[in-house]
Design a protein around this nucleic acid. Sequence first.
DNA 1: CTGAAAGCGCTAACAT
DNA 2: ATGTTAGCGCTTTCAG
Lengths: 347, 347
Amino acid sequence: MTRPKHRPLTLRDVSEACGVSEMTVSRVLRNRGDVSSATREKVLASAKALGYVPNQIAGSLASQRVNLVAVVIPSLSNMVFPEVLTGINRTLDDTPLQPVVGVTDYLPEKEEQVLYEMLSWRPSGVIIAGLEHSDATRAMLTNAGIPVVEIMDTDGTPVDSMVGISHRRAGRKMAEAILKQGFSRIGFMGTKMPLDHRARKRFEGFTEGLTKAGIEIEDREFYNGGSALAKGREMTQAMLERSPDLDFLYYSNDMIGAGGMLWLMDQGVDIPGEVGLAGFNGVELLEGLPRQLATMDACRSEIGEKAAQIILDRSAALDTEDSFEPQHITLAPKISFGQTLRRHGQG
Amino acid sequence: MTRPKHRPLTLRDVSEACGVSEMTVSRVLRNRGDVSSATREKVLASAKALGYVPNQIAGSLASQRVNLVAVVIPSLSNMVFPEVLTGINRTLDDTPLQPVVGVTDYLPEKEEQVLYEMLSWRPSGVIIAGLEHSDATRAMLTNAGIPVVEIMDTDGTPVDSMVGISHRRAGRKMAEAILKQGFSRIGFMGTKMPLDHRARKRFEGFTEGLTKAGIEIEDREFYNGGSALAKGREMTQAMLERSPDLDFLYYSNDMIGAGGMLWLMDQGVDIPGEVGLAGFNGVELLEGLPRQLATMDACRSEIGEKAAQIILDRSAALDTEDSFEPQHITLAPKISFGQTLRRHGQG
DNA sequence: CTGAAAGCGCTAACAT
DNA sequence: ATGTTAGCGCTTTCAG
């Protein structure tokens, strides 16, 4: 018994089933134009009975509009990006627009490929992580003729709009806060960052902030892959054995920071008396740790929401022929002191 | 200075630019059919120079084939699903197929909507989480006439193919392992699960496993939302204050388990001497905890890979008119004992 | 190896 | 309020 080769239903099938022209059926299904409620009912009934699902491929080709938004991100393994996606989803949820996600694995060539494939669907907009792209990628973004929002980072020049935080400033602010608390022998741990520009900028801002106060990082270590929590442990142990004088550890993300904190607590180290700690991201995870790690919120879901909103506004503007200026939104992440950064009471 | 209204380039533009028929340009761009390498070069050069990006909407309509795979999952906030996506991505990466993700927030009505929208793009296949769907959803899946793989769970009857683990069996196996270690006063903590069928089935399998040994859960608590790690802490505290006699705590996911473990360690409770612990999922995070939490791997990325592979094989089979039987793959998750379940040496 | 014609399933624009 | 006509940009099919 072979399954019958299912030719998908077409408007014509519905049209014939209810004796109404294809055009009217189309109008009913899209809630466009005036249709008598009598025929509307008839059409809806037939469509449902048959189990008709419209063909957007044909629809989009005919109408020259595609309700897709391309979203290009480096990874799904780092919770930061799913959170941005959640923000995008939330904003787009009650609109006709639908996000389509592509993942680049932090590789510029892959970013190029992924973007090319997404653009071939002629989406209504692009949301793409970061400001650093290959020339080809930038050219595609420019020439696509659709709204483009570069997200997460604002240290640089976008093709069109951007929404994010300044990672350089984030690093600098953290340096300032640490110094203000009287810490001075500082170690840094983070990912190897040849291609993670945001981590790199945070690091640069951080060292810059220290330098202004005449201070230099005393020790640093970079990792690659593996369980971040475990890496945080290992690196912290290694670093403190190597540089026992350190009085502060700055981690480029909360996960390794949490790992470090757990190790230090195992060792009975007084935090922040002996060693202060700070991470980056403001991940929800931290709330359950034995001690609140100081961190800085990366505004992940807000970035997603704002970026999606820009695409929405732009699409609307394109429909009404309104002009629309590129938006450059820089969010200001706040330091959360937790219990690992503040040395002197409410300092 | 208004930006010129960018009409996207068409095949015709490339055709005119290089003096070759649209048809031949199309052939070159798709590597189909024989084209002299002379003209091939010419076409490729013009296409690149112009920055032409093919229009898949038109292409798919004409060819009646769409290189999209619909992936429908409940959430992005639970790392389980991004990990499944990563598995799918990995398998599909060097194929023409591309995943498109829809999120249902565990709501059956939303699942219906999302699936409807995805099917309207006439994808080559559907990968959808779970076996429980509304009648309408099931009808759409059946009538779509494309390969469907239901993933994560195998306790039930799929529409077509399925890849996953038996959560009922997972719960039962964990119950057996716990009893075998001599624990007998057992508490359970998990999410409120009206719509999380997999969590529910694990719980059912667990109680069933205990019942067979004449044992009942002594206490239980369910939570909703919030930081899982923090919830694990709170619930564990509350439960042990309420039921101080418990000698084992089974958590429906690793995050709350980790929270519970951290709280117990704060209290100086001997693990597993006084209280044994186990979670579920095998999340990477656990590797960095002060003590390895016992858990069970949910085979997340393997499920993604296998599911994608089924879609691939099926698409190939459809092309060659081969027949293809539905696949039902049940993976067997293994218990990882860690350091919180084994009471007696290598017991 | 290359080109010309037809049409994929729908919708914009114009009838009526 | 409803129907008709003509494509959208590409690929299939068939001719050279």
